[in-house]
């Protein structure tokens, strides 16, 4: 056992100043975090967090939670309606994702610097993809509702347009990260650039693209469940209606249904993704 009284702390501190005061104690970091915290408090004050409203709101939130239990669909007919809404939701997400993925492949090629040599084309494609991406899916849904009317078709089109932006960017990044050698090999045999892309590039990036598409499908199912709030089809319509008419037990039942569906889809697509990536791993070795 070490005798504490015999340790000369002052001398140790003088010799190894870095080892005292703990790790990561840094003045500039502290200033940044302090500033962020101050901003947070100011923001909360600005939005009225420190009023009486908050307390009564929390009380009401408790009431709402109690009203939501236990979840129940109301009647058998309602349950069938919800089930159909859920199927519609999945259909919207699936179709929207697929259409966006197909349309995004040529755009991704256009936006990839190693495929498209004209810089002005890559620049313009990228900026338009950025613009598409920064407009939220709900806004796209509203615009498409104005075009094709209320219903799930508008939701499909909204997903298709909104995801083109994300897919185009992700695809172009995957293509830029791809190995150049297969393309050069094909070009060296006399195949043109188009053949080079088709047989040299696409087989290489396809598993990556497919796994990204699966990812987006998963998250799109979640998003599709709220498109109905603005009238673009799917279970969101029933959900927002149930919440607005304070049929909270039905609302919590719908939320439960969504949760279960999303979990099931996550499970399936996870396994699909592993299969895809595994295939790529086999091809590489």
């Amino acid at each position: 056992m070490l005798d504490r009284s015999r340790i000369d702390l002052a001398a140790l501190r003088a010799r190894h100043p870095g080892h005292f005061g703990g790790a990561g104690r840094n003045r500039s970091v502290a200033i940044v975090f302090g500033g962020a915290l101050l901003l947070l408090l100011l923001g909360m004050a600005d939005l009225g967090f420190f009023g009486l409203n908050t307390l009564t709101g929390i009380g009401k939130l408790w009431d709402v939670t109690v009203l939501m239990l236990p979840p129940e669909p109301g009647s058998w007919a309602m349950f069938r309606l919800y089930l159909w809404g859920l199927i519609e939701t999945i259909a919207i997400a699936l179709l929207g994702t697929l259409v966006a993925a197909v349309l995004a492949v040529p755009l991704g090629l256009l936006a990839a610097r190693n495929v498209t040599t004209a810089r002005i084309v890559t620049f313009l494609t990228r900026r338009s993809l950025d613009t598409i991406r920064s407009v939220d899916i709900l806004i796209w849904a509203l615009i498409w509702i104005g075009v094709v009317g209320l219903g799930p078709f508008a939701g499909v089109l909204a997903f298709a347009t909104s995801d083109i932006g994300s897919f185009g960017k992700l695809f172009s990044e995957a293509i830029e990260a791809a190995d150049r050698k297969p393309v050069e090999g094909i070009v060296s045999t006399g195949g043109g650039r188009v053949l080079g892309v088709r047989f040299g590039l696409l087989p290489e990036v396809f598993p990556v693209l497919a796994s990204q598409v699966l990812y987006f499908f998963e998250s799109n199912v979640r998003w599709a469940s709220i498109l109905g709030v603005v009238g673009a089809g799917g279970i969101g319509l029933q959900l927002s209606e149930a919440i607005r008419t304070l049929e909270l037990r039905q609302a919590s039942f719908i939320i439960l249904m969504i949760l279960v569906t999303v979990a099931a889809i996550d499970l399936v697509s996870n396994q699909l993704r592993f299969a895809l990536i595994g295939k790529r791993g086999q091809a590489r070795t």
Binding site: G48, F49, N53, T54, V64, S225, I243, V262
Partner: peptide, 24 residues
């Protein structure tokens, strides 16, 4: 994570009334 933010917002609008608090 799974329940969309908009659904929470709908619920909080009931509890806290219209306004930024529900959104936050």
């Amino acid at each position: 994570r799974t329940v969309p933010g908009l659904v929470f917002a709908l619920m909080f609008v009931i509890a806290f009334g219209l306004g930024p608090m529900a959104g936050v």
